[in-house]
Design a protein around this nucleic acid. Structure first.
Lengths: 245, 245, 245, 245
DNA sequence: TATGAATGAGTGTTCATTCAT
DNA sequence: CATGAATGAACACTCATTCAT
């Protein structure tokens, strides 16, 4: 299951667990009746798996029902239809990304260190959550029609760009980041870093098949990170400034 | 149609057309009977469209038949099954990429110019052939299982890496490219450039939806190209060498 | 319908019918919604008809759906695939045979009478259930690949041979059945009787076409039975023993 | 191929083979152009294989074309349609049986020996030509509709019954065969012997699967033949007469 | 809340057969 | 005589979705 530690929205965090209705017979494996929030979450996790593996068109509602041993009727009860379920899974995946980005407090770091941290955390997140990458890939192939329906997504990501923007300003003010028309803005910088981090995960399979080289092999991890950081810093820093010895 | 410039094998380029039975009205795209090469190619083009839009799982054989007004039976006659057709479309798309790369004779250019050309031609190709990008994306989401079945793909791409390798060697010999353990090898360089060029096309839809910024908008094209070239050159050149004034 | 006497598992034999929703007009054979056991059985009966008439390869799932006016989807819901349905029909037919054989308690009869009874009941069953004969014939032409998948079939039939074996032993002990290396064993005896009873049904059509003689015509029934019994008794009895006056 | 020794109707038996048109390039495997009779026969043999393995409904014209590497068009050219081809194959199989029966000159043997010979030759033929048995089985499951279309089949088989009839008369006249209302007539005798010989081949697969006993295993061949002969003689001979010591 | 049964429109694939050359 | 290309109807099987309980 993607992430067992996920908070379950339908249930109060401090709820007493002991007081639950008669526990189902031992040996029964899956979320058993009478815990709607858990049922909902189980469906959602299965949907994330299914859709991230096969896409919206390729994903099967039946397969999701089988993964959870929850009846299809429940899926429709909770999510309306296939698209509703897909959207919910997509949103869940994006929400996680946001949380991961919030966890990194760029504003608390001095500019160069903040930039370095931003690059590395982006790489780390994409690497850790390939199902995010796959769902985004699928969304793109279908023209991102579904993603448009997710409210709060824009502001969510606008927040990200804003924080990169603040980072860049601080760096320029401090005289360590280049300025002028040739210097990249926040969005361009995000695009650059995303390209590096995303492609590495999204194109892993074909790259490996064609070049016999697994971009995600831990063996290459350190080198890749170092190069990526160097590349971005070279691109942003004023020549000669602030590099590590 | 995906590639109007494709040579049609069943017909000599300069052949006289006048002697043939009444040519179908111009604009009618479906090939008419008794021209197997044309029939096959029409199916293939429609398949490329369909599969690049909806993926292997989402693509419908019926849709391909309707696009061409060729009976489904003929699709199976020529390509065996859905997977065979998909593979053929995938191969066609890859072959075009190779041809586009061959067209650029890196060996004939001096190293810095060659590198600049390589970056730009990669960007241009991905931009010009979004269906290539989409098919590769789909392949990756499915683990590139299909791509493994295409012979000649590895050597085809090995050729590409070889020519980049020669390029790097020449640059180092000439003293303009960095050397040593920190300098990227041919594969790493290819990965870098592909990331930039591929992501811009593959993630266009979500990027636009989230940031209101179309990475492929011609308005940004020149800037993007300039930045990408600068980025790569900065990464490869010895500091201070060979840059344009 | 193949076997009107079949017990319908989903309904208690003496259950009151009055409380149910308006019963469909008598004579309407298709079961109406919401009686799974009946639905399943209706499919199975139609499958037995279809497959016994046209074989596994020739039988059409669509035809079975039409015979019952149950949607194809339900057939797959209950039986998985065509082969699963075929196997279920085959098993049903074999189970009936077993029941018919169990109904004859050979152990309760004295040897000669038991043997006579065994011959006649075998003839009667094959004659009464031509679809059994046809399905077995089809199975044979396909190498009995399907039959191999039916568990319990062997033990089921092993039971038959065992009871014939007991019969033979009792007869030998009583001194009425021949003994020694030339006397047939239980399996040989079964083969002999089956040959006579089975061929008469399985080859009826060609025999009639070629010789203008219907082996199943009631006119010949009595003679055939008498001859078959005599033939078997002559083969098994010690000369001069136990024949009817 | 079923029977390479088959006479090819379209070609004179004594035709010189050396004078054939330029032999096709070495490596080309199958009957090559410009020998219509051979082409026809190749199709027929493949059809016999296909139909005897899968029946009329299950047999595929494509499969027959592939077996011979002759184009489907030729099949239609020679045989009209699938049914025409099936009939031709059926007729070929029956013709062989007739020839095999003609080869045994019952009239030249004394009655008991003739009867013994008849039983054994019937057993031998069925054993040697399982595709005959399978095609007859298939015909029966379909109600022998096709067989009705084969002219000369009745007289062909009438001849068989006549010769058995002559055999029985001779035996009765000689006082070795039983007479009276309880004695079997020619058709009954044919039915009996066919049952034994046919069932052994037709039901081999299910019998083996169910009882782990291969009725055609050479190990049991001698015993089966002895029993079959004894059974028939016991049924026909006057008690005590003419048996072997 | 939950379920198992049911549906109709598709979805990949194959069939026997025919056409133009 | 012979071929490869073409067809439309059927074929086994699956889809997302809904109903009765």
């Amino acid at each position: 299951m993607p992430s067992p530690s996920r908070t379950e929205p339908g249930r109060a965090p401090g709820a007493v667990e002991g007081a639950r209705p008669p526990v189902p017979a031992a040996g029964v494996r899956a979320p058993r009746r009478r815990d709607p929030a858990r049922t909902r979450q189980a469906i959602l996790d299965a949907a994330e798996e299914e859709f991230s593996e096969r896409g919206f068109l390729g994903g099967r509602v039946d397969a999701i029902a089988e993964r959870t041993s929850i009846t299809k009727r429940m899926i429709y009860y909770y999510f309306g239809d296939k698209q509703g379920l897909y959207l919910a899974a997509l949103e869940q995946v994006y929400r996680e990304m946001r949380q991961s980005e919030r966890a990194v407090h760029l504003d608390d770091l001095e500019p160069v260190e903040a930039l370095r941290t931003f690059v590395l955390s982006t790489i780390d997140f994409q690497e850790a959550r390939p199902s995010f990458v796959r769902m985004v890939s699928f969304e793109n192939t279908l023209g991102a029609e579904n993603i448009a329906g997710i409210e709060s997504l824009r502001e969510l990501n606008a927040g990200l760009v804003d924080s990169v923007d603040r980072l860049l300003r601080r760096g320029r003010t401090a005289g360590v980041f280049r300025d002028g028309p040739d210097a990249p803005d926040a969005l361009e910088l995000h695009q650059l870093i995303s390209s590096l981090a995303f492609y590495r995960v999204s194109n892993r399979a074909t790259f490996r098949e064609i070049f016999d080289h697994d971009m995600l092999d831990p063996v290459h991890g350190e080198t890749f990170r170092r190069r990526a950081v160097a590349l971005v810093l070279d691109h942003v820093l004023v020549p000669g400034a602030g590099r590590r010895p």
